[in-house]
Simulated assay, not measured.
Amino acid sequence: MKFDKWYQSGYWDDHFIPYMIVHNDIAVSSVAVCINDICWKDQQKRYVQISTVMTLPEYRNKGLNRYLMEAVLNEWKEECDAIYLLSMILW
């Protein structure tokens, strides 16, 4: 998968961190972290949004996404005020 157009459009910066498992130059499983620094009631907060959760069908049921999710949660649980999952269904 090529990210050039997406990157050039400004969607990939220091607040977007992709976690991927790559096999034969193909991203087969991924989880993305989006860092949201906001001010809430005069207090600075850091919220971590998890999105772009996917695993290609032929790589499912192997624990790949679980591995990525656990890595993300372990890395960010002490670094933010909250972690949440953004979920959408695309038909």
Rank of each mutant, 00 (worst) to 15 (best):
D42S: 08
A82L: 14
V48L: 14
Y84A: 03
E79T: 02
Y19I: 07
I83H: 02
N65W: 11
W91M: 03
S51N: 07
S9H: 08
D14P: 00
N65L: 09
L68Q: 04
V72T: 04
V48E: 06
G10I: 01
D37H: 09
E70L: 15
W12D: 01
N65T: 03
A27R: 07
E58P: 08
W6N: 05
Y67M: 13
V31R: 02
C39I: 12
Y59W: 10
I21A: 04
Q44W: 13
R60F: 05
D13Y: 04
D81C: 01
H23C: 05
H23W: 01
L68M: 03
V28I: 12
K5F: 05
A71W: 01
M1C: 05
D25Y: 05
N61R: 08
W12L: 07
A82I: 06
L56M: 12
L73F: 15
M1S: 14
M69L: 06
G10N: 03
L56K: 10
V72S: 01
K2H: 08
A71F: 12
L86C: 13
N74D: 15
Q8N: 10
D81T: 00
Y47V: 02
N74I: 11
L68R: 01
Y67V: 04
Y7I: 06
Y84E: 08
L64W: 00
W12V: 12
G10L: 05
I83S: 09
E75Q: 14
I26M: 02
L56I: 14
L86A: 14
V72P: 00
